[in-house]
Structures are given as structure tokens and as C-alpha cells.
Amino acid sequence: MSSANTLTRITPKNITDQEFFYGHKACAGCGGSLAVRLALKVLGERTYAAFPAGCMAAVGFIYPQMAFTNNAIITTFPGVASMASGIAVGAKALGIQNFKTVAFAGDGGTADIGLQALSGMIDRGDDVLYICYDNEAYMNTGIQKSGLTPFGTQTTTTPAGKNIHGSKTQKKNLFEIIAAHDIPYAATASIGYPQDYIDKVQKAAQVKGPAFIHVYASCPTGWGTPTETSVEIAKEAVDCGLFFLAEYENGDYRLTRNPKQFASVADYLKKQGRFKHLSDADIASIEAHRDHKWERMRRMWNHQ
């Protein structure tokens, strides 16, 4: 039934009607839950899914409300990659065939506390698809700064005041950290470009071995955005260049979207409560950082 095993492109027309993440308690309009929902629909029912502590674990498994119709498990916060590895290796040792193992972790669970285990998983070459849904903070514990919280973001541990304007650090370069392992396949995606995300999940699912997707996933609660704009805001992040869509395959980087012209960074930021405090100078510095990053990506990576 796993449609990922055919090479027909999965689209809303032919994707399975089955819902695997259903009746969960995520906030209305949660971007992370859309990332999980779509990926599981691509991967199909013969999927083991592992979730570390974080919003998706917290909203999906509240006894007796079990929101996954496929096999799913909560792992320790730092241990999702290694538990997913154990699942994949254990199932193989038992002779189970035709299945996929996927790990879904937040930005904190991936770029901070779970990075070591993820590195080990990739190094061992375990057959796991790891998807990081990036909502740019520790949401489950109440919006604290993570290693993927961008510069200038107001969180509950990076308050914006007179002296400090939110987070003082830039987002870690997670995609390249993962690619530097020479992983067979890595990609970035956004729930604002859902078909592109589906395509990448489908491609990653073909890999026998580790694969990684970093998907930008809005959080209306933590970002201070209206629930109905969750998909739109995740698209705007890409259009204004603060997030990028790319792939790493066979040792090569490729921009899968290379905007001729960026949409306004200020417009993107000003729509969100977490950036309301930013001054024009702050926004200018965010733009400068974006331009520097894109200059390097366009120079070093393949693109159209």
C-alpha cells in the first residue's frame, strides 16, 4: 500500500485517503502537525514513527486518545534518532520486510539536544528518514530559544527589551551540518510549499539508509500569527529568503527554489508577534545576513 514504493508522483489527487495523524490535540492551525500528517500520508501504513518529547509527542499520545493510526512511539527528548535506529535495526533483525522508519523531531530535539544521536544514526547508515519540523523555538515548554531560533526573535528566554532585542544568535546551519556527514539525501522544505515537501519526502523514502528533511513549520501560538495564515506565513519565509529550499544528493548541493527577487523581509516579520519589536536597523541587519547567505549559496551550490 506504501505509495512511496512507486515512482508515480504523489499529489493530492492520488495520495492515500488514509489519515495517520488524526484527532490530535495540537493547537488549531499548527504547522508541525501538517508536516507530520503529509509525510505519513506519503510513507503509508507500513511505517514506524518515532517522536521525541516536543509538541507532536505531547499532542498525539494522551492516553486513551491515540492519534496515530500507524505504529508510533514517543522517545526521550535526546534519543529519537537512536530509538528510530533501534526500531529499524530491530525490525530488520526480526526479518520484517517492506517498512519504513521515520523520526519527527522539533528544532530543539534536532539541532540541540538530539544532534549527537542524529549524527550517530547517519554515521551508522541506519535506514531511517529523519524529519525536523522547525518552528524555531522550544514550543512544548512554552516558547524558549533553541539553536534554530533566528536572530531577533522574542521568546520567553530571549525577551525583547530596551537592552536586548530578542535572540542574539543566528539560526544554526542545520542543513549543512547534516549534509557534512555525507548523508545520501538531505533536503529543506516548507509547509508553505506542500507539494515540494511531498516530493522530497517521497524521494527521501526511496533511500535505503539515512535521509533527512528540514521542514519549516509555522506555529501560530509561538509566533503570534492568526491560525488561518499558517501555510501562508511558511511560504512567505521562503519568498523573502529567510528560509531556503534546497537538496543535498550525491555530494552536491542544489537550490530547489531560487527567487529572482525576494519578497519583503519587513512584511514577513511585522506579521508576527515574535518580531514586532524589531527596529529598522534590526531588520536591515537580518536582510544583510540573508543576502550574505544567499550570495554564498548561489556561488557554491547548483541552481537554475
Binding site: G23, Q65, A67, T69, N70, N71
Partner: peptide, 19 residues
Amino acid sequence: FPVGPQFTAGHLADTNAGW
């Protein structure tokens, strides 16, 4: 009781309509 924290996948005990 379930033996340890494991239960039937997709078992929904309530709805979200009230939200």
C-alpha cells in the same frame, strides 16, 4: 489496564469539535 504505556493505534476517546 494496558501493560505499560501502549495502546491501540488510532484509538480516539473524544472529539475536538468543542474547540
